[in-house]
């Protein structure tokens, strides 16, 4: 009996992430959700610019690669072309919360019936570790070598909190992938974000706190600890919005 196998929605391509990077876990959770909902044949994904740019090789579904930050707009076009298809984006924090802030907020405001997987690793991974909109106060990066000076560059952007004030958004949850219990919660959230779309419920975003051992300068296990000790206190986990929560509870 097979107890553990590669999800059908993943190709055989080798993931291009650094060893120990949690991007790989998140990629797998997305594929599992697609498998479990039986939507592989109708799903179309949008890859961002960032470490997950190669996502178009990882998922065994039709894929588009979008310009930096524009994935929600590209996804909007794909979804509007055929609303029967299930459309998701997979974006980093620079992509989604800096250069693509407008596209994110307005896709949410329109209540675009898409699923957004937002990987918050508090840094620009792909370009070698520059400060992200989500870098923590005091955090040392290539472009904040003396630590993020909040006097000069302000405080981090909290995406779930921000979008929870956007009426159009349906479902917002922040999860983390630093421990098995948290990964299980992340899996449920990602599944729900896709299920919402299948049920036509509108804009769902799951923010996943993730590690970047390479640019944090930490071994993978230490990076998981750092996430738990530093990121989770700043970015509290939980559901920030669930338009249909009452309805589901009533069932």
């Amino acid at each position: 009996m097979v107890v553990f196998k590669k999800p059908d929605s993943l190709t055989n391509a080798e993931l291009s992430f650094c060893p120990g990077c949690t991007h790989g876990i998140i990629t797998r959770l997305v594929a599992e959700a697609i498998d479990e909902l039986g939507i592989q044949g109708t799903t179309i994904g949008v890859a961002p610019v960032g470490c997950s740019v190669m996502a178009y090789n990882f998922f065994d579904v039709d894929m588009a690669q979008a310009a930096h930050g524009r994935a929600p707009a590209v996804a909007t076009g794909i979804k509007r072309s055929d609303p029967n298809n299930i459309v998701f984006t997979y974006q980093g924090d620079g992509d989604l919360a800096a250069i693509g802030t407008a596209e994110t907020v307005h896709a949410a405001a329109r209540g675009e019936n898409i699923t957004v997987i937002f990987v918050n690793n508090a840094i620009y991974g792909m370009t070698g570790g520059q400060m992200a909109p989500t870098s923590l106060p005091g955090m040392v990066t290539q472009t904040s070598p003396y630590g993020r000076d909040t006097e000069k560059v302000g405080l981090p952007v909290k995406v779930c909190e921000l979008l929870s004030n956007v009426d159009g958004a349906t479902y917002l949850e922040r999860v983390a992938v630093n421990s098995v219990p948290n990964i299980n919660k992340a899996k449920k959230a990602i599944y729900k974000a896709f299920k919402n779309q299948v049920e036509g419920k509108g804009f769902s975003l799951v923010e996943v706190l993730s590690t970047c051992p390479t640019n944090w300068g930490l071994p993978p296990a230490k990076a998981l600890e750092w996430l738990g000790e530093n990121m989770i206190p700043y970015y509290p986990l939980g559901v920030y919005k669930d338009k249909y929560a009452g309805e589901e509870a009533a069932k």
């Binding site: 588009a64 524009r70 707009a73 590209v74 909007t76 076009g77 794909i78 979804k79 509007r80 055929d82």
Partner: peptide, 9 residues
């Protein structure tokens, strides 16, 4: 970019 999305389909 929405144009790109539809064109891609």
């Amino acid at each position: 970019n929405m144009v790109i999305g539809v064109a891609a389909t």
